[in-house]
Design a protein around this nucleic acid. Structure first.
Lengths: 223, 223
DNA sequence: GAGGCTATGGCACCTTGCTGCCAGAGGCAC
DNA sequence: GTGCCTCTGGCAGCAAGGTGCCATAGCCTC
């Protein structure tokens, strides 16, 4: 098998991936823009997990996958099956799959399908050159480490912060006194303090300092 | 020129990189474990910056480079010359250089030098295959985006937190009242509040909430 | 309309946090 | 020893935060 070759279409990709997964596939690591980037990847990963739970699978996705509720459900299912799912803070225009750290597949540049609803004959590139694969793998690791685990983004861990709570959060973060903040937000001191108290409950904090800490850790102060 | 080839030794690497930089080198993007990963890269980057300031250079390093004061000085110099320097949260075992997004070089696997102080004949891999380069570039982007800018880690931005201040920080973060925290730390209420006030100054905060937020953002609550 | 629910704001009262002032303790130089 | 400096703790007074209580306003249902 050559060290490096181009693949045309999903069928050819699948034909290349399948034997690798069956022969070596101890570890499946992928970065993808969405859930459709690696066709059948989801099904085959599930199959592998079911067959022998020990195999490791890691999937890194663009933040866009969180937008759709159905996609989130699929992600939760994957996580429940033992696949490690993380969400990158930045989009991942190119998809990458590493199988057992020795072979990698990359999606080709984005091309429009020949007809709007016709099959997309995407191209892929496969490489088994150790230097290339390990170099790209190191970059993947760096992206992986700083990505957020799906669990941390789940509904339970991520407190619900609506627009008003966010304004209160911002006011608190600006260092204003309650009097100034209430005036700024056009509400009475009493109501402002009510909002702050609710925020403390939401963040599970016993003091304002602790609430600020949580908010900072959760990145609620940015964006 | 072949799309993909192996290079032995720094001289050969340099011979390959130089014409690319001179011909196309509008952008130099690299990920490295330390300042020695890309020999002469520093000098050549400086040269390019000086010749035409418009050229873009980005360098992503492992956190280990911050350990040595001399290295930090070099990083500061690079930043002062317009090179964007960021520090990854995780080690980057493999070095990677992208030149103008069309050619990439990767360090080979780590090999011990033939003699302890002899020249290290490291191997490198070069590739100009668009799919490989753009795929790896996407991974680099993801790692870059989540890495911390050197400026944010500089001495000015990073407050000095000694052991005692850290204990106070921890007490504040636990949600205790001042009375309980002072008792816990074996100091009087007055002294505890002095420490808290000093901490606020250190963090540049006007309120305890703001201080907690800063501490959370700076990751001072972990480790 | 009456009744009920919810959100808001004003008030009062208490707790907590913040800081200026001063007294004492400990260390160091002379 | 004296003088000086720094750190600490107690006290006092004020500012700020926290919350229970109640009145009012808006809205929905019947």
């Amino acid at each position: 098998m050559p060290q490096h070759m181009a693949l045309k279409g999903d069928l050819e990709l699948h034909a290349r991936i399948k034997p690798l997964v069956e022969l070596y596939g101890a570890e499946w690591v992928s970065a993808a823009r969405d859930l459709d980037t690696w066709p059948n990847a989801r099904a085959s990963a599930r199959l592998r997990i079911r067959r022998d739970g020990a195999r490791q699978a890691r999937k890194l996705y663009s933040p866009a996958v969180l937008a759709d509720e159905r996609d989130r459900q699929v992600l939760r299912e994957m996580a429940a099956q033992g696949i490690q799912v993380r969400i990158s803070a930045t989009p991942l225009p190119q998809g990458t799959v590493f199988i057992d750290r020795r072979t990698m597949f990359l999606t080709g540049p984005e091309t429009a399908p020949s007809s709007p609803h016709g099959p997309r004959h995407r191209t892929y590139t496969m490489s088994a050159e150790p230097a290339l694969v390990s170099g790209a793998y190191a970059l993947f690791e760096a992206a992986w480490e700083t990505a957020t685990d799906l669990a941390a983004l789940s509904d339970a861990a991520r407190p619900r912060i609506d627009a008003q709570a966010r304004e209160v959060l911002y006011a608190l973060g600006s260092g204003m006194t309650d009097v100034a903040a209430a005036r700024e937000l056009g509400m009475s001191l009493r109501t402002y303090r009510r909002r702050v108290a609710e925020l403390l409950v939401t963040l599970g904090a016993d003091s304002r300092f602790q609430a600020g800490m949580r908010a900072g850790e959760l990145g609620l102060t940015r964006r």
